[in-house]
């Protein structure tokens, strides 16, 4: 990780951390940091600038958050059908669209 006052530049493997995961994590950190990312030869280069702290921990927290989002994406690939069925049922029942058990 390169450091330049509050700006950090780091590179992640796109095979391990998808662009989608990085985008979701960047959204979570939108209030805490300015984040830019771009593809660079099979890697993703991330520029992370935060006023909150000059030490590395907030950028490291951000990488943990990318992993959080990535694991959610991994799970969605395996389990989206059951997940969707349950949520759909819950919302439809609440809206009275199906017969309700007493």
């Amino acid at each position: 990780m390169k450091n330049d006052n509050n700006m950090k530049i780091f590179v992640l493997d796109e095979e391990i951390y998808s662009k989608e995961a990085i985008a979701l994590a960047a959204y979570v950190y939108a209030d805490k940091a300015e984040i830019e990312y771009k593809r660079k030869k099979g890697k993703i280069e991330i520029k992370f600038e935060s006023d909150e702290s000059s030490d590395e921990s907030i950028a490291d927290d951000f990488v943990n958050e990318i992993l959080n989002q990535q694991c959610r994406i991994d799970l969605t690939k395996k389990n989206s059908r059951v997940s969707t069925i349950i949520v759909t049922k819950a919302l439809l029942s609440a809206a009275g669209e199906h017969t309700v058990r007493g």
Binding site: L12, D13, S57, D60, V63, N64, L67, C71
Partner: peptide, 22 residues
């Protein structure tokens, strides 16, 4: 698998900052 490694790494992010590289 990569999924297994990612999840196991994720599970300890309460105690560590974790980064994976190929």
């Amino acid at each position: 698998s990569l999924d297994d490694i990612r999840y196991a790494a994720y599970s300890v992010t309460d105690e560590a900052h974790v980064e994976l590289k190929k």
